[in-house]
Design a protein around this nucleic acid. Structure first.
Length: 681
DNA sequence: CTTACACGCTTTTTT
DNA sequence: AGCGTGTAAG
C-alpha cells in the first residue's frame, strides 16, 4: 500500500537568505583594479596582472567572492601551473571564507586531465589503470621503437631520442602536424621526415596498446574525450560552471583549446596572466594565447593590475627598461609606492669562482645585517650554472636548497624502484618491464625484448598478463635464470595481496632491489636514504595508482637530504632556475652569469622569438626582488659550446641607462690564498 | 649472438 | 652524470 508523503518545509537560515551580505569587505581589502577583477560578473574575462601586482591575492579573493555569492565550490575549477600553487591558493581562500573552499577542484591541466580520464576515459579506450610516462620514459619507449624499426643506421645523422621526443611533443602542444614542425624548427632533419612519421605512428600505437600516456597525451586525450563522447563532455563541462586559469601566458594552444571546450556550455572563464612573463615557449606555450583570448572568447572584459606591491622603484625602473625593448606586449604601466631603495648593482668578477666567492661573502654579510637566509635567493638561467657556487656555499657552511634542474624522482635508483611498482599496476607497461629486466644479471636489450614480447601479447590481451609474465620469468634457464626467478618472486609477493599498502609494496621491492643497487653504485648509502624517503612518501597513500600518478605528475623536488634539513627547521638560502622561481619573491636576489652567451643563452641566438623569450626571462628574474638586486657576470670564461670567450654583460643591459645601475669592481685582498687554488679541487 | 664495460662527448628551461 | 659507440669477453 502506498503511503501519502507529507511535505515538510526546511526553512533557510537568515544567513542563507541574504546572499548579498558578503562575509568580507572586499572594497576595503583590495585596490580598485583588483576589486573590479574580483567582482567581475559572469562571462569571459582576462586579467592582465603585472609582476608583483597581487595576482595571486586577486585569484584567492575571486574564489572567496564567488563562494560568498553562493556559487557551489565544487563547480569551480582552478587551473594552475603547479598543484602546490593550487593548494596554496585554496588554503588562503579558506582563511578568508572558511572550509567551503576545500571543495574547489584545483590542480594543473595535467593533473585535472588525469583525474577526468581515469573517471570518464573508457569510451576512448582508456582503462582507469593507465600508466603516465614522464619525459624520460617517453624517450626510452621511442628509443626501443627506433631500434625495432632499424632506424639506428650510423651513416646519416638521425635525431637523438631527446630531440625526437621534443619534436613529437611540439606537434601536440602547438596543434601542428609533423611536417610543419620539422620543416620550420628542425629543418636539418627534414631528410628523415618519412622515418620520423613512421616512428611517430609506431609510438602512438605502442602507447595505445599498452595503456601508456605521456604528458601530452593527458591533454590530447581529454580533448578527444570532450570532442567525441557527448555524455562525458556534457557531464564535465556542466559540472565546472566556473573556470579560473592562472599563468595563462604559459599555456599552449592545446591548453587554450581545452579551456575553450571545457567552458563550451557557459563561457565563465577568467584567465589571469602577464604577457611579459611568458617563459615556456620551448614547450609550446605562446603569449599569443593572451593576445588572442578576446577572439577565442568574444565579449571578454579586460582588467589590468598595475600597482606593484613587491619591489622598490629602482628595481622596477630596471625591469621596465628591460621589457621596454620587447617587440610585442600589452601596454601597462607598473608603479609602486616604495619609492626609495638601493640601486641594483652590476658586478664584474674575474671568473666563475670569483663570482661564487662574491655571492657567498655578500650573503654572509646580509645575514649579519639581519636578513634571514630564506629571504635571499640566487637565480640563474640553467641549472648547472650554480655548480661552482654550491661548492663554495658548502665550504662556508651556508645551508641552501636548490630548485629546478634534476629532480629526486629522476635519479636512476628511484626510477628503478618505481618501475617495479608500475608493472604491478599495469603489466602491459613495456617501458618499465624493459627497465627492470635490464637490471637482472645476464639480461641485455635483446633478452629483455624477447621476454616482453613473449608475455605481453598485445594482439590478444590476456585476462591476467601479470600472472603470465611471472610464469614466463620462472621458466627461464641459463645465466639469467636465477635473477629472473628472484624477480618473479618479488613481483608475486608485492602484487598478490590487495591488502598491501603502497608503502609495504615499496618495502617489498626495496628488499629485492638493494643488492642490485649496491652492485651498481658505489655511493649506495646515499641512494638507500632516497629510497627510504620514497617509502615515507608512499605511506601517505592508500592506493598504488594514486601514488604512481602523483610521482609522475607532481614529482617531489627535494631529496632526502633536503627534507632532513627542512625538518630541523633551518633557514635556508634558495638557489633556483628562473623558471622555478616563477611567482616567488625575496628581499634580496642575486642573478648569476649575467653574461652574453649564458644569459641570453647562446642557444637562443638563432631566432628572434627565442631571444625575446630570454628577455622576458630576464624580466621575471629582476622582478622577483623586493629590496636588493645583484647582477653578477664573470669575464674571461671559455664557453665550450660556442668556442668563444665570454666577457660582455648580457645584451639586455645594453640599452639600460647607466644611472639605473651601480657598477662594482671586485678587488682581491692582499695576501696569499693559494690554499684555495682551484688546481687542487 | 649477447652482454658487459670503457671511452669520449655534450649539458636550457619543465608539466 | 648520462648517452651513444666501440670493443672484448662470454
Amino acid at each position: 500500500m502506498e503511503r501519502e508523503i507529507k511535505p515538510y518545509v526546511l526553512k533557510r537560515t537568515a544567513e542563507e537568505l541574504a546572499p548579498a551580505k558578503l562575509s568580507r569587505d572586499y572594497a576595503k581589502e583590495l585596490n580598485p583594479q583588483q576589486l573590479a577583477a574580483v567582482t567581475a560578473g559572469e562571462g569571459p574575462s582576462l586579467v592582465i596582472a603585472g609582476a608583483g601586482s597581487g595576482k595571486t591575492r586577486t585569484l584567492v579573493y575571486r574564489v572567496a567572492y564567488l563562494i560568498d555569492k553562493g556559487v557551489d565550490p565544487a563547480s569551480i575549477l582552478l587551473l594552475t601551473f603547479t598543484r602546490k600553487a593550487a593548494q596554496e591558493m585554496l588554503h588562503r581562500a579558506g582563511l578568508l571564507i572558511g572550509a567551503r573552499s576545500e571543495r574547489v577542484f584545483g590542480g594543473t591541466f595535467h593533473s585535472v586531465a588525469n583525474l577526468l580520464l581515469r573517471r570518464y576515459g573508457r569510451p576512448i579506450g582508456l582503462e582507469p589503470g593507465f600508466t603516465i610516462l614522464d619525459r624520460s620514459d617517453a624517450e626510452d619507449l621511442i628509443n626501443l621503437l627506433r631500434a625495432q624499426l632499424g632506424m639506428n643506421e650510423k651513416d646519416k645523422r638521425f635525431p637523438r631520442k631527446g630531440t625526437i621526443a621534443e619534436i613529437f611533443s611540439k606537434c601536440e602542444n602547438t596543434l601542428q602536424n609533423l611536417d610543419d614542425v620539422v620543416l620550420s624548427e628542425f629543418a636539418h632533419f627534414s631528410e628523415h621526415l618519412e622515418a620520423l612519421d613512421q616512428l611517430k605512428r609506431a609510438y602512438a600505437e605502442a602507447k595505445r596498446q599498452r595503456q601508456l600516456l605521456d604528458y601530452d597525451d593527458l591533454l590530447v586525450k581529454l580533448r578527444e574525450l570532450l570532442g567525441k563522447d557527448e555524455g562525458a563532455s556534457r557531464a564535465i563541462s556542466s559540472s565546472f560552471r566556473t573556470i579560473l586559469v592562472d599563468e595563462y601566458q604559459d599555456t599552449n594552444r592545446l591548453q587554450a583549446d581545452l579551456v575553450r571546450k571545457l567552458a563550451a556550455t557557459h563561457d565563465n572563464v577568467m584567465a589571469v596572466g602577464d604577457d611579459a612573463q611568458s617563459i615556456y615557449g620551448f614547450r609550446g606555450a605562446t603569449f599569443r594565447n593572451i593576445m588572442d583570448f578576446p577572439t577565442l572568447f568574444p565579449g571578454a572584459r579586460i582588467y589590468k593590475l598595475e600597482e606593484n606591491y613587491r619591489s622598490t622603484q629602482p628595481i622596477l625602473n630596471l625591469a621596465n627598461e628591460i621589457i621596454q625593448g620587447a617587440a610585442e606586449k600589452y601596454s601597462k604601466h607598473l608603479f609602486t609606492r616604495k619609492l626609495d631603495g638601493p640601486l641594483p648593482a652590476l658586478i664584474q668578477a674575474a671568473g666563475e669562482n670569483a663570482q661564487s666567492r662574491f655571492v657567498a661573502q655578500k650573503i654572509l654579510e646580509l645575514r649579519e645585517e639581519g636578513v634571514p637566509l630564506d629571504e635571499i635567493a640566487v637565480l640563474f638561467r640553467s641549472s648547472f650554472h650554480s655548480f661552482d657556487l654550491e661548492i663554495e656555499l658548502s665550504r662556508r657552511d651556508l645551508p641552501f636548497v636548490k630548485r629546478g634542474g634534476f629532480k629526486f624522482i629522476e635519479t636512476a635508483h628511484v626510477k628503478d624502484l618505481i618501475a617495479h611498482l608500475r608493472v604491478l599496476e599495469n603489466p602491459l607497461d613495456a617501458v618499465s618491464w624493459n627497465r627492470i629486466l635490464l637490471l637482472v644479471e645476464g639480461v641485455g636489450p635483446k633478452k629483455a625484448q624477447d621476454l616482453i614480447a613473449s608475455f605481453v601479447k598485445t594482439e590478444r590481451p590476456d585476462r591476467e598478463p601479470e600472472r603470465r609474465a611471472i610464469d614466463v620469468l620462472r621458466d627461464v634457464s641459463g645465466r639469467s635464470g636465477r635473477g629472473l626467478k628472484d624477480l618473479a618472486r618479488v613481483l608475486e609477493e608485492a602484487g598478490r595481496a590487495r591488502a598491501m599498502t603502497p608503502a609495504e609494496q615499496v618495502n617489498e621491492v626495496y628488499t629485492y632491489y638493494l643488492p642490485i643497487l649496491k652492485e651498481q653504485h658505489d655511493d649506495y648509502p646515499k641512494r638507500m636514504r632516497d629510497l627510504e624517503h620514497l617509502y615515507t612518501m608512499a605511506e601517505r597513500y592508500e592506493r598504488l595508482d594514486d601514488f604512481l600518478a602523483d610521482m609522475a605528475l607532481e614529482p617531489p623536488d627535494e631529496s632526502a637530504a633536503d627534507v632532513e634539513a627542512a625538518d630541523r627547521n633551518d633557514e635556508r638560502l634558495v638557489l633556483s632556475t628562473i623558471h622555478s622561481a616563477k611567482g616567488l619573491e625575496w628581499q634580496c636576489v642575486f642573478m648569476l652569469w649575467v653574461v652574453d652567451g649564458r644569459f641570453p643563452s647562446a642557444y637562443s641566438f638563432a631566432t628572434e622569438e627565442e631571444l625575446e623569450e630570454e628577455r622576458r626571462l630576464f624580466y621575471v628574474a629582476v622582478t622577483r626582488a623586493k629590496q636588493h638586486l645583484y647582477l653578477t657576470y664573470p669575464i674571461n670564461e671559455y664557453d665550450k659550446a660556442t668556442g668563444t670567450i665570454l666577457s660582455k654583460p648580457s645584451r639586455f643591459l645594453d640599452d639600460v641607462s647607466p644611472s639605473l645601475l651601480e657598477t662594482w669592481g671586485l678587488v682581491e685582498e692582499e695576501g696569499s690564498r693559494e690554499w684555495e687554488s682551484r688546481e687542487w679541487d
